[in-house]
Amino acid sequence: MPSRRPLDRRIHRGYASWERVAPTHLRLQYAGSIGIASAGMGWDYGRRGQWETELLVGVVPAYHSDKAKITLTLRETFVPWSIACGGRLSVEPLACGFYFSTLLSDRFWVRQPERYPKGYYFFSTRLRSYVFLGPRVTCRVNDRRSDRLLRAVTFCCECSTCDLYVLSRWNNRTLRARDMLSLSFGVKFQLFDSRREVCAVHGTR
């Protein structure tokens, strides 16, 4: 049997052929500048599943506008360490990455409309880029049963900022950290394919 690091239980069983397009997890998120709530799917990869790519759809309430808006977000996450704590719990002290988000509304634009003087807006109102970091805690489900769909549940807390805030801070030194940072909370549901689990138990593919 292959050796396993004692403090890192992460296992990424690779997909074969067309199975590579199947998502490995689902994610729910509250806040984070991409809507009051967002949900989507993602893919783990890397030797220990330390890379994650996710696609989320979020909802921005109407507030003072006439209707709610939809956001579309593409995330990339790197999780360098996972430390086992007891039988089922593990702590990932640092998850970091970046994401791009867009508002699906014709009231926002990528290039400045001609009705504004040239250079009036130096940024896009439709596209935003973010960086984030934060800790995570994972609770493993009893994955010895091949008929279970859920492998683990991860609780995430992230602090993020976007390109517009950073540029604004460059020109406006009165901006404070709390004006630039956003806090979000998420839940990740790790899935697995029962057929691959059975193959792994018997040592075949």
Rank of each mutant, 00 (worst) to 15 (best):
G35S: 02
T77E: 08
V187P: 15
S82Q: 10
L150T: 05
A31G: 02
F78A: 13
C96W: 03
R88W: 08
V59H: 15
K67R: 13
N142F: 13
S105M: 05
G203M: 07
R10N: 05
R13N: 09
R48A: 12
M180K: 11
A152M: 03
G46P: 10
C156W: 13
L89I: 11
P61T: 01
F122V: 00
R107T: 11
R111G: 15
Y130E: 02
T102W: 00
R4Q: 10
C159H: 13
S33D: 03
D147E: 07
S105N: 09
G35Y: 05
E76L: 14
C199M: 14
L55A: 15
R88V: 08
D44H: 09
A68N: 08
P61D: 05
F98T: 06
D66Q: 14
G134L: 07
H12K: 06
F132L: 04
A62L: 04
T24C: 10
G119T: 02
L181P: 01
S146A: 13
A37S: 11
L28G: 12
Y121L: 01
E114P: 06
A200S: 14
G35A: 04
W51Q: 07
R9K: 09
S105C: 10
Y30P: 01
R10M: 04
T154N: 06
I36Q: 14
H64Q: 12
F185G: 15
T125Y: 09
P2R: 01
L89Q: 10
K69N: 10
L89M: 15
Q112W: 01
T53E: 14
S65K: 15
R20V: 00
Y116D: 02
A22P: 00
V110N: 12
G58E: 01
A22F: 09
G119Y: 08
Y63W: 01
C96H: 04
E52P: 00
F155Q: 03
M180V: 05
F122T: 02
G42Y: 02
R144T: 11
R145M: 04
F192V: 04
D163L: 12
F123R: 13
A95C: 12
G40M: 04
L55D: 06
D106M: 08
L104H: 04
M41R: 12
Y121Q: 00
E197P: 05
Q29C: 04
E76T: 07
C157L: 10
T53C: 11
V60D: 06
P80I: 00
P135S: 08
N172Q: 09
C139W: 13
V166A: 14
C139H: 09
P23Y: 06
D66F: 14
R176A: 05
K67A: 10
E114T: 06
H12G: 04
L164R: 12
S168I: 00
R115K: 14
T24W: 10
R148H: 10
I36C: 13
E76G: 11
R196Q: 08
S33I: 01
F185A: 15
R169H: 08
T174R: 11
H25M: 06
S101M: 04
V166P: 01
S160H: 05
V187G: 11
A22Y: 08
V198P: 01
P117M: 03
S33Q: 12
L133M: 12
S90H: 14
